[in-house]
Design a protein around this nucleic acid. Structure first.
Length: 803
RNA sequence: GCGCCUGUGGUGGAAUUGGCAGACACGUUGGAUUUAGGUUCCAAUGUCGCAAGAUAUGCAGGUUCAAGUCCUGUCAGGCGCACCA
């Protein structure tokens, strides 16, 4: 052997072999047990692959390769989430069609992914910008529309002044655009909305049926934000009704004023009766200019204006109470109006202090002069009419019953989750397949006309008034109504990037189907995804959206499972060498092409898995990667020490069984770093013996194969183990052989280690204690002391407690 | 402010139900091989100490025969949410 480990040659050879033999193609052979491993498909940016991409891809590649060796029919697909702003912006700047930009970027990404030796089934590649794909994205939208889950709404939206695009709430981070960091302002626009709120309860409930990391579940539950309370109707002196939502109806006797959102519609209605309308208008204008972020920024100083001329009546005691407008009440949550109980709500307390409003204590136990008493678990009701003397919990039930009996209110569940703003005034997205007819209103285009493709336009720039570039194209806009045949205009907005990624996992099951999004047979066999790994940052966006779409499609019978993903895990980021996030501006970017050239793909894979806890962020280290290269060099060099032998040698037998067990278990629990450490330790043990036999080398190559597929295939073939490695069986271990024959027992005196003994595994307590006491060093230390206690832990330690 | 998570050598990180802290690497030091650099191999490597030994998991307490692990308090860092009534 004695040849150098020529990774470049070996990797090119096996990548070619896999491609030519279509090795990783997932058959639609429905008789075999299946395993569907999924990684988030990338956005093919112009910069090419980031060094962070291979981390989750390699991890799931390891799982997929292990499953194949275990006899599963494995679906491990890849595709491109290719609509989106960076491509469009590049197209605008360079006056080139975004489809061409996308094509070029995809080709580059694909080449880079193949160079890592990932076992994707490239026959099932999907691309969200391919009309054969987005035909079905549009089809799904039409079903949502037909089922009343898509609707158009005039609303204040988040507008990124830099991208010139509407953002979903989820895309606004700290008052700035998630993508470009530009300023986000409020703007009133007519938008397509998807009623994700209709599925809020199911999205919470069905988390019980899936295996996600706890923090992923918690984040989703918090984001959906369910709360239980009541809606209460307050009469006003104008004869109107003002409905509020509250989670504390038990404190109704303590409501001393009301607050409504500055944009509350009642204000317009009461304009004639309000004597301080100028002041109110000024406050409304000030509030309208602020984004949601600005409104939350100033949460310390409560501001507001009292409505002079209108009062509300507390339904429990008939008391007239003032109404204020204040921007601490949001129109978008609940009813846009609250009953304020300053004694038992911090915000109301602060507001009442500013405006000198009286407080009424209705739950005993706090000091309302100092602070609002909000701890509801322990309190007893006071000053509360028929609720007085009850516990808070009982009072909640009683008041809700009372509200429902008297018709003054009712139980109500609310969610923080808002409906999904689905329109984008952009070119590079799926056109929304609807037309607007003067007579018939919004009408779906016939399904047989799908896909509705993007027309060629002069400029991809949004117009100055924020409309889509498509809005300037008369030939696209003007059409006929599918319903009445009269003149109609097409919707010119496109879908957000989230659309295509909300169902791609379904398309992988049957990617070339032109009759339906995927056949029932294929879905029935492959779905749900058995293991989905992706970024933590997608927990409230992509994960929620795609679960929503899948649930809707399930309800209309288009898919076969209620939940799309059985198991969801998340990986940590790869940081720069300085521990900061990698970015061009910080100058700490590592290019995967360079690493592969210098060390090889197998080393890159090993290092990305060895770098640290898979779930945590880890800084890149150019020094540490050498350790992985060294390990693979050592594995390669084992071939020079090869001897015959068809069984593990006795001195290594236990080590082999233990390592197989460790690697098998660690892969399942994402502990790739310790799996690799175990293999390194095994190789070190082998080196100590000075040789390796054929049985041992064969097992080692299979075990290491998911991590370093090229190197192991080459060793396997070069030594004539028979067949190709990827068609072999995952090694098995014998639990009985994982146990050592003798164990080292620690002997402590008063918890301090004094000596160690070698005893047979499972030795009897009495024997071990006797042997410990007989040890000269221990005997000397016990001499003249009173033995109070003897602790014995099987196969672990002995502890003598003395006085 | 609220919620969740994390604090272990010079560095990345390991440590079943509480049971030898520092696996596995990186780096460093010394040695061997080499004309030299690189590679490879051997040895050492938490801290203090010649040694015996002592001491050590952010800090301060507590429970226990025994604590990185459990409890209380506290500090630092990270993530999420952020006036959600």
């Amino acid at each position: 052997m004695s040849q150098k480990y020529d990774y470049a040659k070996i990797e090119a050879k096996w990548q070619k072999y896999w491609e030519e033999h279509n090795t990783f193609h997932a058959d639609n052979d429905y008789s075999k047990p299946k395993f569907y491993a999924l990684v988030e498909f990338p956005y093919p940016s112009g910069q090419g692959l980031h060094i962070g991409h291979p981390r989750p891809y390699t991890a799931m590649d390891i799982v997929a390769r292990k499953r194949r060796l275990e006899g599963y029919n494995v679906l491990f697909p890849m595709g491109w989430d290719a609509f989106g702003l960076p491509t469009e912006n590049f197209a605008i700047k360079n006056k080139i069609h975004p489809a061409l930009v996308t094509e070029k970027n995809v080709a580059h990404f694909k080449e880079q992914l193949k160079a890592i030796g990932l076992s994707f089934d490239w026959d099932r590649e999907v691309n969200t910008t391919d009309p054969n794909y987005f035909k079905w994205t549009q089809w799904i939208f039409l079903q949502l529309f037909k089922h009343g889950l898509a609707y158009k709404k005039e609303m204040a939206v988040n507008w990124c002044t830099s991208c010139k695009v509407v953002l979903a709430n989820e895309e606004v981070v700290g008052g700035c655009c998630e993508r470009c960091g530009g300023e986000v302002v409020r703007k009133v626009k007519s938008q397509w909305m998807l009623k994700i709120t209709e599925y809020a309860q199911k999205l919470i409930d069905d988390l019980a049926e899936v295996d996600y990391f706890d923090r992923i579940k918690t984040t989703q539950i918090n984001w959906i934000g369910r709360s239980e309370g009541a809606e209460v109707d307050f009469e006003t002196t104008t004869g109107d009704t003002l409905t509020v939502y509250t989670t504390r109806p038990d404190t109704l006797f303590g409501a001393t004023y009301m607050v409504i959102a500055p944009e509350h519609p009642m204000i317009g209605k009461w304009a004639d009766q309000l004597t301080n309308m100028d002041e109110i208008r000024a406050y409304q204008e000030k509030a309208a200019k602020k984004s949601d972020f600005d409104r939350t920024e100033m949460n310390k100083d409560k501001t507001g204006v009292k409505l002079e001329g209108v009062k509300a009546v507390n339904p429990v005691n008939g008391q007239e109470i003032p109404i204020f407008i204040s921007d601490y009440v949001l129109m978008s949550y609940g009813t846009g109006a609250i009953m304020a109980v300053p004694a038992h709500d911090e915000r109301d307390w602060e507001f009442a202090k500013v405006f000198g409003i009286p407080m009424v204590e209705v739950v005993a136990g706090g000091n309302i002069e100092e602070a609002a008493f909000t701890d509801c678990a322990t309190g007893v009701m006071v000053n509360s009419g028929f609720l007085t003397g009850l516990s808070v919990e009982d009072a909640k039930v009683k008041i809700k019953d009372w509200l429902e009996e008297t018709g003054k209110g009712h139980r109500k569940v609310n969610f923080k989750l808002r409906d999904w703003v689905f329109s984008r005034q952009r070119y590079w997205g799926e056109p929304i397949p609807l037309v607007n007819c003067e007579k018939c209103g919004w009408v779906a285009i016939p399904e047989e006309e799908l896909p509705l493709t993007l027309p060629e336009v002069e400029s991809y720039m949004p117009t100055d008034n924020g409309e889509s570039p498509l809005s300037t194209l008369e030939s696209f806009i003007n059409t006929t109504c599918p319903c009445c045949g009269g003149p109609a205009k097409r919707e010119t907005d496109t879908m957000p990037q989230w659309a295509g990624s909300s169902w791609y996992f379904l398309r992988y099951c049957d990617p070339h189907n032109d009759k339906e999004l995927a056949s029932k047979e294929a879905l029935n066999y492959w779905m749900p995804v058995d293991w989905y790994n992706g970024g933590m940052e997608h927990t409230t966006l992509h994960l929620l959206y795609s679960r929503f779409w899948n649930k809707f499609l399930y309800d209309i019978g288009a898919v076969t499972t209620k939940e799309p993903y059985m198991k969801r895990t998340s990986h940590g980021m790869i940081l720069g060498e300085n521990g900061e996030k990698m970015s061009k501006s910080r100058g700490n970017v590592i290019n995967p092409d360079d690493i592969i050239r210098q060390y090889g793909a197998d080393t890159l894979r090993m290092y990305e898995m060895f770098v640290g806890d898979f779930e945590k962020a880890a800084p890149w280290s150019t020094n540490s990667i050498k350790g992985c290269k060294r390990f693979l060099d050592r594995v390669w060099a084992l071939q020079d020490m090869l001897t015959n032998g068809d069984a593990y040698r006795p001195e290594l037998e236990s080590a082999f069984h233990k390592t197989i067990r460790k690697v098998s278990e660690d892969i399942e629990s994402l502990k790739f770093n310790t799996a690799i450490a175990a293999m390194m330790a095994l190789v070190n043990d082998i080196y100590v013996t000075g040789s390796i036999n054929r049985a041992e080398l064969r097992t080692l190559t299979v075990l290491l194969n998911p991590f370093a597929p090229h190197l192991t295939e080459e060793i396997y073939e070069a030594n004539g183990f028979g067949g190709v490695l990827n068609e072999q069986k995952w090694p098995v271990y014998d639990e009985a052989l994982c146990v050592d024959e003798t164990v080292e027992i620690v002997v402590q005196i008063c918890g301090k280690v004094k000596t160690k003994l070698n005893v047979p595994a499972g030795a009897a307590q009495a024997d071990v204690l006797a042997q410990a006491k007989a040890d000269p060093k221990i005997a000397a230390l016990l001499e003249g002391k009173q033995l109070i206690k003897e602790i014995y832990v099987q196969n672990k330690l002995v502890n003598f407690v003395v006085k």
